[in-house]
Design a protein around this nucleic acid. Structure first.
Lengths: 338, 338
DNA sequence: GTGAAAGCGCTAACAA
DNA sequence: TTGTTAGCGCTTTCAC
């Protein structure tokens, strides 16, 4: 309980226990053979002193850092924490530890965060998306460690990738909507030119519509604020402008839920008069009066697979370096089926 | 773009630029006077090589690590990410960087995470709650760095603390409920014996009720699953058992929202026949058809204050070491006022 | 304005 | 089973 300025070193434990620094180090790391008696002495001394090893020195000496950099755009929607949960679950069974960095969807910030993290010489990198600055790409290339790009499968990876095709997700949803006979379709999303995955979904979506000669009738984008509230407002705005809309595709489930609540309040027949769909498959929505049609983004699974790749590579094993998962569509109660 | 095994060192940059390692180091850290010409040479060489400094070596040599350990129970509800946002915002203007660890509300895991983080010799610690294992407390004491315990103000801090009194929050809510004339009161919460803050709210709540001779009629606890769905289910269960309940106090806004949606569907008069209140003031809820009564937990502000304390202390300045914030109650549309 | 020497606290490799 | 030696890649300090 004595508060000192300098923190304790191996030497202190060595002196307190009468065992060489090297042997103390061995005990503390469970490395090599140490007699039970010595081990006991060391452990007691370390505990008594309240010794906490200095990983900085350890890492420098051993040239090994058991950290995995996980770089994601945001923590403030449920999607990335769920990826993280998958990553943690897998790494828990290894020596590795995830360290999270957040980019706020800004490429320059991503570059900065990546630089910071690489300067700690982690054992691997898991990073969201396939779009990065030239410099970021170069750093990942030069790092010499395994790099897994996640969440997206439409593009080229620097090293390895695990994700879904958002373009395909957009196409599949468009096909289901057309098949159900909807014709006047609106798209509501976030005002995020840098959310490449939302953009790709939108591209796939319009592409499939176009093949049937259908165009998106209305679009609306928001930024900031409560997604639920924004979904509500935007839905109202769009329907006020174009009352003949018969389907709304939302770029995420949260704004979709807002729209759904709004339409229910208005007494509008969903999915009869208007159909709805979102994206993500967030568990949260399960408490809503009706289930929104959506597509699962396989978030947890992506985290799991990515972490497995890193873990194998760190062991020196070879792995797949490109895993594409296929999201399931769920029709819920807001997308009628023929 | 050449992928090598060994990563680059100062020496490499030194050789490439024909400038001593020491001067290269100075340029890269903007320390001391270096002529513009030399600076230029070094920067060019460093960029060309794709050199990323090794912070491990730097930290060991300088005995300084610009990391702040932030230890929280969970990322999967909106509350902690918002604290984090506050922390990040403040640290962004400093040399310091937050590093997040998650404990899942488990004391042993907290102890482990703390140990891991301290072994990287961070410049400060921000940790949720005032309840920790004996060992954790000892480590924080011995660390010799600023430690700020956050979110709670009911108890003793190891070093500094920033939070609200959850006991008081419970009392205030109870008083408002009694004042509004509600009598048959239920409590629905998480089955989390280790969520001390929820426990303290409940204690404050029952304490104030007791003073007016009122007892909590029904309690129900859940774990896992979608909070919205659970709120719905529990509300139904409780009302089926005790149809004369006239108020439900939820331990968080999410289950409260589930309850609210359920009651609205049932056509029950809220807040006339049954009143509702939650806790947290989550922005998400702003899209609901009616506003749930709640109390703001001052999450972002707590993060801001805590980070400010760390930042000041790292500068060697003195600061308050105990900040108690006062949450505002918002009555919304689910708690009638006289 | 620039460089040389010493050492941060640990671990790899070897010796005893 | 235990100890000794020599760095890991940087920064501090001091000399020039």
């Amino acid at each position: 309980m004595t508060q000192s300025n300098r923190s304790l070193t191996l030497r202190d434990v060595s002196e307190a226990s009468g065992v060489s620094e090297m042997t103390v180090s061995r005990v503390l790391r469970n490395r090599g053979d140490v007699s039970a008696a010595t081990r006991e002495k060391v452990l007691t001394a370390a505990k008594e002193l309240g010794y906490v090893p200095n990983k900085i020195a350890g890492a420098l000496a051993s040239q090994r850092v058991n950290l995995v950099a996980v770089i994601i755009p945001s923590l403030s929607n449920m999607v990335f924490p769920e990826v993280l949960a998958g990553v943690s679950q897998v790494l828990e069974d290894t020596e590795l530890q995830p360290v999270v960095g957040v980019t706020d969807y800004l490429p320059e910030k991503e570059e900065k965060v990546l630089y910071e993290m690489l300067s700690w010489r982690p054992s691997g990198v898991i990073i969201a998306g396939l779009e990065h600055t030239e410099a970021a790409r170069a750093m990942m290339n030069a790092s010499g460690i395994p790099v897994v790009e996640i969440m997206d499968a439409d593009g080229e990876a620097v090293d390895a990738m695990v994700g879904i095709s958002h373009r395909r997700a957009g196409r599949v949803m468009a096909a289901s909507i057309l098949e159900a006979g909807y014709k006047k379709i609106a798209f509501l999303g976030t005002k995020m030119p840098l959310d490449h995955r939302a953009r790709k979904r939108f591209e796939g979506f319009t592409e499939t519509l176009a093949k049937s000669g259908v165009e998106v009738t209305e679009r609306e984008f928001y930024s900031g604020g409560s997604a639920l509230a924004k979904g509500r407002e935007m839905t109202k705005a769009v329907l006020d402008r174009s009352p003949d809309i018969d389907f709304i595709y939302y770029s995420n489930d949260m704004i979709g839920a807002g729209g759904l609540l709004y339409l229910m309040e208005k007494g509008i027949d969903v999915p009869g008069q208007i159909g709805l769909a979102g994206f993500n498959g967030v568990e949260l929505l399960q408490g809503l009066p009706r289930q929104l049609a959506t597509m699962d983004a396989c978030r947890r699974e992506i985290g799991v697979k990515a972490a497995e790749i890193i873990a194998s590579r760190v062991q020196g094993e070879d792995t797949d370096n490109s895993v594409t998962l296929t999201p399931k569509i769920s029709f819920g109660d807001t997308l009628r089926r023929q």
